[in-house]
Computed example of a mutant assay.
Amino acid sequence: MTTVEPRAYTPRAEVRDVTLRDGLQLTSKTMPTQLKVDVVRDLLALGMPSLEIGSMARGDLVPPLADTLDVVAALTPEELDKCWIWVATPRHVEKAAAAGARRFQYCLSASNSHNKANIGRDTDTSVAAMPDAIRIAHDVGGSIQLCIATAFTCPFEGITDPRRVLAIAADRRTDGAEHIVVCDTIGQAIPTQVADLVSALRVAQPQQRLVFHGHDTWGLGVANTLAAIDAGATMVDGSLGGLGGCPFAPGASGNTATEDLLFALRPDWITPTTLTGIVELSERILAEIGEANRSKTAQGARSSATAFPWVIGDAGRRR
């Protein structure tokens, strides 16, 4: 009897793992720098096409990310070409670039209240500074993303008007950003809401690649991500074990789990063997920092249904 494998999800999208930035923001225990470097290399070796590996936020405000420049300095240029760094000011880009970074995610919030809580200034001030950030990134041969947090809801202001997000994306001061990242920062969006905003951005900004960054606070992380892909997003974010959240957004919890996205999307590089490697790496990381594993795929992979090739065991490891 011939086994027919389920087809991969289409349209296709690249999965970016953000464990080492967004995933670590709320952890009470810090991860050693060398372990972070090892995680970068392990994920790249397993086939992960891109990662977010740190933040230029103040170390006293986000201690788990205080060693970001040390992580950057430990990686090769080839490795850094697949690694993104969170920045919020031109000075952030300058410092990260001096350490060797070449991929920058310039973040601001659609809502003024969250931008002030997260970055310490209103949204327009962040937009006004972006041309300098873009120039510095391009001067070192790098690329930069426009990352719009609270694109769907804000913990202080409620539902975000989509016109606000579209206006930021269309602002000439953001010209030069290679991608637009739309963030469901506190995980309150629903699939139709995600599809509508991503579709509108695709029509309004056809020259830019769209990225969706979702959280699973209300259990719709994977559903929202699939809706974003169907609407035109070509990169989506996840964190190992569903780790993460925003320290400046009350009510935010973990990201959509990388394992869950990979199991759903089945990119060309994912097999039962590589998924096993990712699940086991995730379990080691979470044990190191004392955090719970929220991934449903990780739970399923440890089930007793061993006839299923994606369950960890001999059947999964042979593939």
Rank of each mutant, 00 (worst) to 15 (best):
L201I: 14
A233V: 04
A257D: 05
G232A: 04
R209A: 15
L261C: 05
M235N: 12
L243G: 11
G254E: 08
A200L: 00
M235P: 00
G214Q: 05
E259C: 08
A204M: 07
I270P: 01
S239M: 01
P206D: 14
G244Y: 13
F248T: 01
G251K: 04
T217V: 07
S253P: 00
G254Y: 09
H215S: 09
V211S: 12
R202F: 02
P250M: 06
L210K: 12
F248I: 05
H213Q: 05
T273L: 15
S239H: 03
T271V: 09
V222I: 12
A249V: 04
T217N: 01
P250Y: 03
A264I: 12
P267Q: 02
L226G: 01
G241V: 00
M235D: 10
L201T: 08
A249K: 11
H215Q: 10
E259Q: 14
T234A: 14
G251E: 03
G244W: 11
L243E: 04
H215P: 05
D237A: 01
P267M: 11
G219C: 14
D260K: 03
L201G: 10
V236N: 07
N255I: 03
S239C: 14
D216E: 09
G242L: 07
W269H: 13
T271F: 04
V236A: 09
L243N: 09
P267N: 02
D260G: 05
A233I: 03
A223K: 00
C246R: 12
G245R: 11
A200P: 03
H213K: 08
A249F: 13
C246W: 09
R209C: 06
T258Y: 00
G245F: 09
A223P: 03
A233H: 06
P267D: 08
D230V: 06
A233Y: 07
A231V: 01
L210G: 05
L210M: 11
D237R: 04
A233N: 08
T217R: 00
S239I: 06
F212G: 09
N224T: 07
V222Y: 02
T258F: 00
I229A: 07
G244D: 11
P272W: 06
P247H: 02
T256H: 08
T273V: 14
Q205D: 07
C246T: 11
G245E: 09
F248L: 09
S253W: 01
A264S: 15
L262A: 10
A223H: 03
R209W: 10
G238N: 12
S239E: 00
N224C: 11
I270L: 13
W269R: 01
G238C: 11
G238F: 11
T271G: 02
A264Q: 14
T256G: 12
N255P: 08
Q208P: 00
G254N: 05
R202T: 08
V222A: 01
